[in-house]
Design a protein around this nucleic acid. Sequence first.
DNA 1: GTTATTTTAGAACAATCGTTCAAGATGGTA
DNA 2: TACCATCTTGAACGATTGTTCTAAAATAAC
Lengths: 191, 191
Amino acid sequence: MARKKEFDPEERMEKARDLFWEKGYNATSMEDLVQTMGLNRGSIYDTYGDKHSLYLQCLGNYAAEKLKEHKEAASGTSPMERVENMIRSAVEATVNTGKCCMAVNSTFELAAVDQSVHSIIKNNWKDIVDFFEQLLTDAKAQGEISADKDPKLMAEFIAANFTGLWQTFILSKDKKQVEKLAQFLIDMVKH
Amino acid sequence: MARKKEFDPEERMEKARDLFWEKGYNATSMEDLVQTMGLNRGSIYDTYGDKHSLYLQCLGNYAAEKLKEHKEAASGTSPMERVENMIRSAVEATVNTGKCCMAVNSTFELAAVDQSVHSIIKNNWKDIVDFFEQLLTDAKAQGEISADKDPKLMAEFIAANFTGLWQTFILSKDKKQVEKLAQFLIDMVKH
DNA sequence: GTTATTTTAGAACAATCGTTCAAGATGGTA
DNA sequence: TACCATCTTGAACGATTGTTCTAAAATAAC
């Protein structure tokens, strides 16, 4: 055996992830990454592969973490309360950090032309929609939402609305407006 | 006086616009533009300025055209029917062309870091929301939607949902699903 | 037909892009 | 202690980036 890495690959990847998150894939240069990660070019290539490979790892890391956060945010005594908390929690995270979802940024920058990116995001999207669907199915069984509602369709609708909320936040930069819109969504879903 | 341009600046700009639309700003190189526009580098710089300036002109052109299309799609005998047709028309355009909104792509790629881009898109966004708001105000006056609804908020909600529909289309590539989601939105808005 | 002015064409610019490589440093194992 | 696989370093690669410049071609006005 030989030397051990002087850095923590996971920790440095998160620095790269935050940079990609902020600037997007194409606007982030290898030089930027060298500076931000505090690593030599060679170490980056040796550890993560090329820029695209590093990006995929960052995106995968983000997606996994985001899914975990969504599930953690789903606290509450009833299914619909859990759905509500998920929505509010996502909005809160956005307005507090000032950053919107990296996966959504990536969707509009790359997913249409990059198969690997598309696949990662689509799977993550499906996980989130499935989680919503389960909650809404429970809500329906408990009579929290009316019997004529389609949990799957409604789950997709809620998830799609996240993207709308993020766009609204980017354009308006108005915390209050995003929160009002989120409340409107919740009211619509609950009836 | 001297020579006249051998090309139609407007027509060539639309070729640039379509390329930016497809690939995004950062992934489009000047060389790409030279090839696609069929112009010499010098002619591009002389006519449109640098790459960023050309992009802003393309985006402005797109925004103006999109607003026009939205208004043209707003046909119908009642306000709510006109709103419905706007939504359906936007979805149809997306699934038929396979392309989603350039302004939304641009929002997630650039608006957070580019003030000029942000301004163009925000203004266009406001125009569209205002148009929806007017229709919804009429709908409310005519009793098509209930009196407790807020037309402005609902207009923002509908506009935000467009973005969600586009994202769903990119990820699912499923025409039917996007149409179902659009119908769900219409049902929600109409009650 | 001359002149003035613009448009063209394409070479060329420095800067940056993503990537590779060779040489030196390191430390666990034999 | 000697070995050597691995990690670190920094220079360097060719390709491409956005942009500029020069000279030739073209045309409207005189």
